[in-house]
Amino acid sequence: MARRPGNNPKRRIAPLERLTEERKNALTGAVRYVGSGHHKRNPADYGLPRANPRPTKSLCDLERTILSDEARRLVASGIRYGLYSEPQEDGFPKFIWSVSERGEVFEAKTDTHGTGEYHGYPLEDEDAMHKYVKSIWEERCQNAGQ
């Protein structure tokens, strides 16, 4: 298994043995993908009044527009394969990672208010998490027979 460089404990994938099916099912039912205008050029079908991209934020629609259904599926598949950080005190992980059918690596992040609402963005190839997430994804999908 690839080792994750860096020292941010919130940005680490939780060990597989801690991710029970019961926990993953509960988490899938509790999280909501809401998107963020700070990561979009186009509000698409997210119900956002407008896009308000920030220069310091990754744009999730830089390469292509990702509609809300696909974003929700990505979050759900990240949970199914156990690609999320240790749950916080509120029961929600700070991060959930996923890989699209096209091989794009995404990170979804929740706020600190324990609402279970997430927004996501692609991880750039230069980000050390990109390679790490992709390697864990491939390993866990292979073990699941996918």
Rank of each mutant, 00 (worst) to 15 (best):
T56G: 05
K134F: 15
D69P: 01
R73P: 03
E89F: 03
E89L: 06
D90N: 11
E22C: 01
G29I: 02
A30K: 09
I66N: 01
T110F: 01
G145Y: 05
M129C: 07
I136H: 09
G35I: 00
G91C: 01
T28H: 07
A144D: 11
T115S: 15
G6K: 09
M1D: 10
A108S: 11
G78Q: 09
E117Q: 13
V31K: 04
T115Y: 07
G37E: 14
P93F: 07
E101C: 02
V99P: 04
S85A: 13
E17A: 11
A144G: 01
S85D: 10
E21M: 05
K10F: 13
D111E: 13
E104K: 00
A26G: 03
D125R: 10
E139L: 08
R3H: 14
K24Q: 13
E86H: 10
R3G: 10
A51E: 09
R18S: 14
I136A: 08
R54T: 05
K94A: 11
H130S: 01
G82F: 08
A128R: 09
S100A: 04
N52Q: 10
L123F: 03
K40F: 14
R64V: 00
L27W: 07
A30D: 11
L74S: 00
E138K: 11
T65F: 00
I79L: 07
N52D: 12
G103E: 11
A2S: 12
I79E: 14
R32E: 14
Y132V: 02
L74K: 03
T112H: 15
A30L: 06
R3K: 15
G6A: 07
T112G: 14
G114W: 11
A26W: 09
E139H: 07
R41T: 10
E104N: 00
K57R: 13
E86A: 11
E86S: 10
E21K: 12
K109D: 06
L67Y: 15
S58W: 03
S68W: 06
E124W: 04
I136Q: 13
E107T: 00
N143F: 03
Q142C: 05
D61T: 00
K131M: 03
E70M: 02
D125H: 10
V133L: 08
E101T: 02
T65Q: 05
L62D: 12
D111Q: 14
V133P: 01
N25T: 09
L19C: 12
S135D: 08
L59I: 13
G114T: 05
R50N: 02
S135T: 07
P5L: 13
T110V: 06
E22N: 03
D45S: 01
W97S: 02
E126W: 11
V34P: 02
R3L: 14
G47Q: 03
S98K: 05
N52A: 09
L59P: 00
N42S: 13
W137Y: 13
F106Y: 14
N42A: 04
G116H: 09
V133I: 12
T112Q: 11
E17S: 04
R73F: 05
R102Y: 06
E70I: 01
G116Q: 09
R3T: 10
